[in-house]
Design a protein around this nucleic acid. Sequence first.
DNA 1: GTCTATAGCTGGATAGAC
DNA 2: GTCTATCCAGCTATAGAC
Lengths: 202, 202
Amino acid sequence: MSQERNTEEQIIAAAKKIFSAKGLAGARMQDIADEAGINKAMLHYYYRSKEKLFEMVFNEALDRLLQRLSNAINTNLPLTEKIREIVRSYIEGLMENPHVPLFVLNELQQQPELLIKQFRSKPSFPNIQQFLMEIAVAGEKGLIKKVSPIQLMLNILSMCVFPFVAKPLVKGVTGIDEVQFKLLVEERKQFVADFILTAIQP
Amino acid sequence: MSQERNTEEQIIAAAKKIFSAKGLAGARMQDIADEAGINKAMLHYYYRSKEKLFEMVFNEALDRLLQRLSNAINTNLPLTEKIREIVRSYIEGLMENPHVPLFVLNELQQQPELLIKQFRSKPSFPNIQQFLMEIAVAGEKGLIKKVSPIQLMLNILSMCVFPFVAKPLVKGVTGIDEVQFKLLVEERKQFVADFILTAIQP
DNA sequence: GTCTATAGCTGGATAGAC
DNA sequence: GTCTATCCAGCTATAGAC
């Protein structure tokens, strides 16, 4: 009689937690086993090696990150409302998994090939080109100011993601605590959207 | 006869390179020794342990990061020009050390106490409160729109730093190469400043 | 499927010659 | 100060009993 499903899921959940907290190099198989409430040997029984387990977790994390981006970008709204929606839903998604971006970005820095594995066969890969085109067209039509589409997209992403990546620094420099930080981020859904829309007003 | 100075500096330079590329956990003392062109034992002769060496490198990196921020914030200019100057000089500084922010943010995530060591006796610590006050006052005077000072500051930092932190992702998703990336960042000095100033126009 | 025990290696740290 | 040789802890991974 097997708890296969349960155990596998437990392992993945534990691995996700430990890997994203400590990174590939810093994580210990023992930590993951403890977190999952099972034995170290079981990890190798289900997933052959640390690398394999990591790749599984990492790809899922990257996939979710890109998926969220895709969903936001592909909504069928006029550009300005779409931007508001992107900001809202992206920040909301990050609030649920606040340490994922730093984890992903850090591992991508060290092994940029990791991204390439996502290209293959992934429908989650965001259709950036279409969104960039949309910005360009809206600029031509005078719906928004004419701006470099890539720069604008970078600005949007920056302001959504950065606070999560820099959380300890932000808390340290400003002196705010966890509760205030949560509030700050919550406020940002509105603030960032307004900020962007004002900046690109025609 | 000693190459003390030279060797010490060589070690620090090598350690900086390896640590910021691979992080504390991922770096190997052997890598650092190779990079410095010396023997592994020498590292322990000059700096007792891996941790000590790391702390030295890390503190210097964090210090420089905060110093740059301080310098930009403390210039004696009217707020709008100051913002333009902050963006310009901060991005320029990051172009010279593009991997430092991710390195620092990542290690801070894993050991937030590392920041506290900077508090002590560091005049480089940026006088954030004064800058926030300046924003509030400018809002009251109608020089800029009334906005949450912290949110505005976060926006400024986000747009400057994020592209460096997310470099591999940006390159992967947009498909641009190294040269185009450099150009993109160069352009940002202007673009981001204009973007911000437009957004906070009264 | 799950556990204990252990093999085998990697890497930080030290001893000791020069 | 610098090097070679080596120790030893910690870790991944596997063998083998249940």
